[in-house]
């Protein structure tokens, strides 16, 4: 009984650490890719560059929150009660960027 318990724990341990290191390599690869884009894609493609950077940032954020912070494995209601309030951030982005555009119009 005790022996099988230890065995089980050891098995759990290897799968857990495997997931952790996989997540690390994903984050590492995405960061490397960001650098590649920063230096190879010309600055003329401004919108494309920014879109790629933001997309990659969201992917990285997903892996950190879901795997490292373990939110993916928590109860769904907990995940949603953290994620839904983020809608205010989306609102603030839209509101303030529109505002910034207006300030620019007035200034120049």
């Amino acid at each position: 009984m005790a022996a099988s318990n230890v065995e089980e724990k050891r098995h759990e341990h290897t799968t857990n650490t495997k997931v952790i290191w996989r997540t690390f390599w994903i984050l590492f690869a995405i960061t490397a890719l960001e650098f590649l884009v920063a230096f190879t894609l010309p600055h003329d493609y401004k919108v494309l560059r920014i879109a790629i950077f933001i997309a990659m940032t969201i992917v990285k954020a997903f892996y950190i929150v879901a795997e490292f912070m373990h939110l993916k494995h928590e109860v769904k209601t907990l995940a949603w009660s953290i994620l839904i309030p983020m809608i205010f951030v989306v609102w603030l982005i839209i509101a303030l960027l529109v505002e910034g555009g207006s300030v620019f119009q007035v200034r120049y």
């Binding site: 907990l78 982005i93 303030l96 910034g100």
Partner: peptide
């Protein structure tokens, strides 16, 4: 801790989005 981090996320969002606003309003 999760709810504290949520509030902290709002603070950082406010800072970064304000950066966006100021940058967007400059040449």
């Amino acid at each position: 801790m999760w709810f504290f981090l949520l509030s902290d996320a709002f603070t950082f969002s406010a800072l970064l989005i304000s950066y966006g606003l100021v940058r967007y309003s400059h040449m």
